[in-house]
Every structure is written in structure tokens, then in C-alpha cells.
């Protein structure tokens, strides 16, 4: 009986995490698109339009089924959001969160969203692929025995490893530079040949959810310690929720900062941070 209760709790946490992140997705999309404009002193569109569009999208989804490719993009986004550890490591699917698999899922979703690849998107996806492999390798090098991101978070609570944490933060930064989230204007360019109003709105909403998944992955990689433990109890859960909010805000701020400084997609900075990650992880390994 106790075990069934625990299982139900994990499923409940999974559902809560998914719904919370899906609600946060339009908010984060708004921040990514409008905050740089607002900081530049220009007028911005109100947040409620975004939220309404997202609500219309989910309402429409119940009535009319999606087209195949967009549905696949949304599937990858939902899989990412439900598998990545967000509040605590105790959610039902957090055991499936292998960083390489999750990252590639988001990249696959990005590829399926558009009818053609944007200019420069090829280089971004290729670089992100290499960096994800590097991340997976560094985790396996510095923390052998951990199972995916959830296992890594749990291990770092028990046995802090500054070398690995620094390396992962550098990796996340490199990923953010090499493959920034999709912007509103990117999606507009993707949609230049699409006339159907409903499909346009659906693509925009799915792009927001994919961005949310990508940013959550970057946030989890850069601050894995802030994910709560499954055994933390109620206080631990609340702490995990706060930490999730702080982590996401920080990630969004860093991404917007990169955007404002025009450092996105800079090959030099990507290589620099990837090198820093490699050095930190190797130094951590040789240091112990």
C-alpha cells in the first residue's frame, strides 16, 4: 500500500512538473523575445497576448489534431519537459533523463518544426551535437556510476565535485552560445511559406515549448545541485521549486545577455568554453 502511494506521488509530481513548465513556456518565450527590446527602450507587446495564444493552442489541440511533423516536434518537447529533473529527482520519468538523449530530442524537434532549415541553423545543430557528446563524456569521466542527469544531481548532493560542476556549467554556456533558443523572428522566417493561420499559431507555441525544454536542459546542466532530492520531504520539495524558479530566471538572463552582447553563435567563444569545460573536468579528475 505504501509503495503504491509513493508511486502515485511520483506520477503526481511528474504531472505537476509538466503542467508548470508548459505554463511557464509562453512566459519564457515572451522574456526571450521582448526583454531585449524592452531593455533597449522600445515598446513591447503585452504578455497576455502570448498567454492567450498558448491557451488557444491547447484548446484547439483538443478539437483538431495536429499535423505530423509539428506533432513530432511537440512530442519531443513534452518528452524533454517530463523526463528532465526539474523540482526534485523523484518524478516518475526522471530516470530516463540521459543528457545526450534529451539534448538530441530537442534538436530533433527543432529540425522538424520548420519546412526548411534556417540559414545558419545547420552549423548550430552540428555544434550542439558535438557539445552534447562532450557533455556526456565529461559526466562519464568525472562521475562514473551515475545514471543520467537525475543520478548526477543525487550524487552531487552526497559528494560535491566542484571540477565537474564547473565543467558542466561551462558546457551549458557553450551550448547556449552555439545553439541559442529559437527567437520570434526565426519562427517568422520559418513560417514564410505557411498560410494556414492555425498552423502558424501552433508552430509558434511549439517553438516556445521547445525553447523551454532547451533552457531547462541548460539550467539543469549548469546548476545540477539545485535540483532537490527525492527523499527531501515537503520542505525539500518547496526548496526545489524555488531553486527551479531561480535557475530558470538565471538561464534566461544569461541567454538574453548573450543576445544583447551579440555573442550568440560565436565559434570562438564556443570553442573557448568547451575547452574550459574539458580542462576543468580533467583537472578535477587528476586532482583527486
Amino acid at each position: 500500500m505504501h509503495e503504491i502511494g509513493m508511486l502515485l506521488l511520483t506520477v503526481l509530481e511528474l504531472l505537476f512538473q509538466l503542467v508548470l513548465l508548459l505554463v511557464l513556456a509562453p512566459l519564457m518565450g515572451w522574456c526571450l523575445d521582448e526583454l531585449p527590446l524592452w531593455l533597449g527602450g522600445r515598446g513591447v507587446s503585452p504578455l497576455r497576448f502570448r498567454l492567450l495564444r498558448s491557451a488557444r493552442f491547447w484548446g484547439g489541440l483538443l478539437k483538431v489534431p495536429l499535423a505530423g511533423p509539428v506533432a513530432l516536434a511537440l512530442t519531443t518537447a513534452i518528452l524533454t519537459l517530463s523526463c528532465l529533473p526539474a523540482i526534485t529527482t523523484g518524478s516518475a520519468l526522471s530516470g530516463l533523463a540521459d543528457p545526450l538523449m534529451m539534448g538530441l530530442l530537442v534538436l530533433l524537434g527543432r529540425g522538424f518544426l520548420a519546412r526548411f532549415l534556417l540559414q545558419g541553423e545547420r552549423g548550430r545543430l552540428g555544434a550542439a551535437f558535438l557539445l552534447l557528446c562532450l557533455t556526456e563524456a565529461l559526466i562519464a569521466l568525472a562521475a562514473p556510476g551515475t545514471d543520467g542527469l537525475a543520478g548526477l544531481c543525487a550524487m552531487l548532493h552526497i559528494e560535491p565535485e566542484p571540477g565537474l560542476e564547473g565543467a558542466l556549467a561551462a558546457c551549458a554556456l557553450a551550448l547556449g552560445i552555439a545553439c541559442p533558443p529559437l527567437r520570434g523572428e526565426d519562427v517568422t522566417r520559418m513560417l514564410c511559406s505557411v498560410r494556414d493561420q492555425q498552423e502558424r499559431e501552433a508552430t509558434r507555441s511549439v517553438a516556445d515549448i521547445l525553447n523551454c525544454g532547451w533552457l531547462l536542459l541548460l539550467a539543469d546542466l549548469s546548476l545540477p545541485v539545485s535540483v532537490g532530492l527525492a527523499q527531501g520531504g515537503v520542505a525539500g520539495w518547496w526548496l526545489g521549486l524555488m531553486a527551479l524558479a531561480v535557475r530558470l530566471v538565471l538561464t534566461v538572463m544569461v541567454v538574453i545577455g548573450l543576445r544583447l552582447m551579440a555573442q550568440e553563435c560565436s565559434a570562438r567563444l564556443t570553442a573557448l568554453f568547451a575547452g574550459v569545460a574539458l580542462l576543468l573536468a580533467l583537472a578535477g579528475r587528476f586532482g583527486t
Binding site: L61, P65, L66, A67, G68, A71, L72, L74, T75, T76, I78, L79, C83, L93, G95, L96, D98, M101, A140, P144, G145, T146, D147, G148, G151
Partner: peptide, 26 residues
Amino acid sequence: GGGDGAHLPVMAIVLLGAAIWIGLVR
């Protein structure tokens, strides 16, 4: 199994993804 304690859940991800996709496209 990755030999070092890590696991790649191939079947679970494929099945879950297929279920979600079918639910979305109906």
C-alpha cells in the same frame, strides 16, 4: 547498460514518444 551504472532507456523513450505522438495526431 553503459557498464558504469548509466542506462539508455531506448524502448521506454520510443514507446512513450509513440504514445504521445499518436495522442496528438489522432
